[in-house]
Design a binder for these strands. Structure first.
Lengths: 131, 131
DNA sequence: CGGAATCCCCAGTGATACTG
DNA sequence: CAGTATCACTGGGGATTCCG
């Protein structure tokens, strides 16, 4: 799979129906970027400000990926100094209801520490749930 | 390294409304696991068979995490040899419509190579879209 | 059979500096 | 302001092995 150069040695999981849409939400910062764009169009610098701690490198990468995947549009503004404006595409706006449905269910989830992925030795599930 | 400086261990991104639900879909195999459970209850070995190539280690980790997060229930069956049965909880079933909405939008997405995240030098976006 | 412990690798991210 | 180049590090995941 892949462009001529640099194939990944790590074989990806077989795709499931969810795969296509989840590709958009992959990456630690993708959700924040999409959410920040769910309102009105934003410029690069605005996004950096809206999403504290995100690095320019990652923001740039996620925006470019979302653009390639058809969720985000990029418009170079002929201003001085130059600026760029990002917005959700039609497809991007179509996806928002699905996203919001997910958010709604998320609110009903029990609060669990992120470390749930890294089970402490000897700690029982009950213990972690009770904490 | 010198002294035990508690160097920042990859600070997680600030949470956004999506974060909570996306924690469930994190990990390369989580979508497959959830999808495999969306029908009827399955045993550990059945899941390994349903999800080709998944390692026991990862399947176990994802199931445990989903259990902790309240999406999946685990029932130890008192059989011989011992077996375990996994199923979506009430909350898990509540999440399925949201998931399916996401799947529906996914079908409308343009087919883009997974390598979109690793832009090749000099290759234009248009070029990758046309490919 | 269901799962935990160990070892290793690499894709994604952060930090910083630099360019247009 | 809007990105890109380079380096270093981390932890998720694969493979294998061992346990109840």
């Amino acid at each position: 799979m892949g462009l001529p150069l640099r194939r990944s040695k790590v074989e990806p999981p077989p795709p499931c129906p969810l795969t296509r849409s989840l590709l958009l939400l992959r990456g630690a910062w993708a959700p924040n970027v999409i959410w920040a764009l769910s309102g009105e169009a934003r410029r690069f610098g605005e996004l950096r400000h809206d999403i504290p701690k995100i690095s320019a490198r990652v923001l740039s990468a996620r925006l470019r990926e979302l653009e390639i995947r058809g969720l985000v549009s990029r418009q170079l503004l002929d201003t001085s100094p130059p600026s760029a404006e990002y917005a959700l595409t039609e497809l991007g706006r179509e996806m928002m209801p699905a996203i919001k449905a997910l958010v709604a269910v998320g609110h009903k989830l029990p609060e669990v520490d992120a470390r749930a992925r890294k089970p402490a030795r000897g700690a029982s599930i009950a213990g972690r749930l009770a904490a």
